[in-house]
Design a protein around this nucleic acid. Sequence first.
DNA 1: TTCGTAAAATTGGTCACACCAATATTGCGG
DNA 2: CCGCAATATTGGTGTGACCAATTTTACGAA
Lengths: 248, 248
Amino acid sequence: MVEKRLYHSVANQILELIDSGVFPTGSRLPGERDLATKFGVSRVAVREAEIALQAQGRIEIKIGSGAYVLDASNKALNGLPKVGPFELTEARALFEAESAALAAPIITDEAIAELEKYINIMSGEVVTDMSADEADEAFHMRIAQSTNNHVIIFVIGNMWKMRTEAAELQTVYKSVCDKDGSHRQDEHTAILNALRNRDPSAARAAMRAHFTRMIEALLVASEEAAYEEVKRKASESRSRFTLTQQLH
Amino acid sequence: MVEKRLYHSVANQILELIDSGVFPTGSRLPGERDLATKFGVSRVAVREAEIALQAQGRIEIKIGSGAYVLDASNKALNGLPKVGPFELTEARALFEAESAALAAPIITDEAIAELEKYINIMSGEVVTDMSADEADEAFHMRIAQSTNNHVIIFVIGNMWKMRTEAAELQTVYKSVCDKDGSHRQDEHTAILNALRNRDPSAARAAMRAHFTRMIEALLVASEEAAYEEVKRKASESRSRFTLTQQLH
DNA sequence: TTCGTAAAATTGGTCACACCAATATTGCGG
DNA sequence: CCGCAATATTGGTGTGACCAATTTTACGAA
C-alpha cells in the first residue's frame, strides 16, 4: 500500500478508519495537528489528504470546527448514487418526457434524421459498428441535446450512466430488453413521429408511454426471476407510479 | 466571485483558463510558483487548488514535470458543468414541477409541517440560525425527498449545487432575490397548499409558476444590469421558454 | 443555581522559507 | 550529430508562524 504521494497514503489511512467504523458517519475526526502526529507526517500532508477527500465528497471541512465524515452509504465510486431499476426508470420517465416536450418545437431536421438512423440501427435494418444498446443511448441523448439546455443534457446523461454502471440494473434490464424488441421499436417510432410533427404534448406522452411499459416489463421480470431486492422495491414503486400515470 | 476558501477561488480561475482555451487539453500549465505570483497568492493555495482539481479528474500532476490538462469529456462525474442562469432555471422548472407532482400524493404530514416551517423562516416570522437562502434550499429539497426517489433527489440536489457554485449565477440571482421576496413567499405558499391537498396537477402548476416568474425576473435583471453574457443567452431562452409555457 | 457573556483554547486557512527528489533542459566533449 | 553529465526547473514535504472562525471554558450577574 505504498503511494507515490504522501497525501494519498494519508487519505487512504483516513478512509480505512472511516470504513472500519472508527470514525462513524457524521462524526468529527481529529484535528489536522493530531492526525499529523498520529500518522507521523506533517500537517501539510494531512491537510492535502483532507482536501482530496473533500473533493471526493467523503468529508466536509468546516472552518474553525473540524472535518466531518459525510454519509457515503449511497454513493458509488464515480460520485453517482447507486439506485434501483424502478426509481431510475421512474425518474427517466418524468425527466425525459419533459426533455422531449421541450425539444419538440425546436428540434432540427438534422436531428430528426439522426434519430431515424438510430432507430434503423436498433431494428437491424442498418448495419454499423454501433450496437443496439449504443444506438438506444444515442437516440435518447440526441433528443436531450435538441433542448439546447446543458443542464438537461447533463442530467439525462448522468441517468444513463447510472443505468450503465449499476450491475444490478444490467441484469434486470438485459432480461427485459431481450423480449421487448418490437415494442421498443414501435415506441421509439412514436416518439420520433411526435417530434417530427413538432408536437410537444405528443412527444411527452410518447416518451412517458415508453418508460411506463418498461416499468411494467421490469415488474414482470422481477417476479419471474429471484431478484429479492428488486421485488421488495417493486411493491413500493408500483402503487406510486400508477398514481403518476393517471395524471395524463 | 468570492469563495470561502482560497484554493477554491484559485481552482475556479484555473478552470476558467482551461475552459476558455488558454490551456488546451493536454497542455502543461505554468508552474505552481508562476501561478502563485500570477494569482497573487501563496504557492500553498495553488497547490491545494491543483490537488482538488486532480481529485476531480480535471488535471494530472506529474512529479518534477508539471500539471497537465486532462480531456474533460470524461468529466461530469463529480464536476458539475458550468451553466447559465436561464437554462438552469428552465431545467429546474421542468424537473422540480414533476418532482412536486410525484410527491404530492405521498407526502407525509411531517414533511408538510417542515415545509411550513421553512416558509416561516424565509418570511422572517421565525428566527433561527438558518438563512433565508438555506431555508429556500431546504424547502425545495424536502419536496424532492418526499418523492422517495433517490434519482430525483440526486438530480435536484445537483441543480442546487450548480446554482450555488456558479459565480455568475450568484450575482444575477442575488439581484433578483432582493426584490421579489413577497412574490416568492406567495408562490411557496401556493406550492405548499397544493401539496397539502395532495393535488399533483396543482403542485406541478404551482412549481412551474414559481420558476416561470423567476425567469421573467431574470430577464428584467439582465436588461437592467450590464451582464452582456447573460443578455446574449436570454435572447435564446426567451422564445424557447415561452413555447414551453403554452403547453399548460 | 441558572444564564448570558467574555475570555481562552481549539481548529482550520494562509503564508514564507527551506530543502529534497524527480524530471527537463542545457551544454560540453566526442 | 550524438551521448552524457551538469544544471535548472518543477513538484513534494516539512517547519514554524500568524490569522480567522468556532467551540469551549470560566466567571459574574440575576
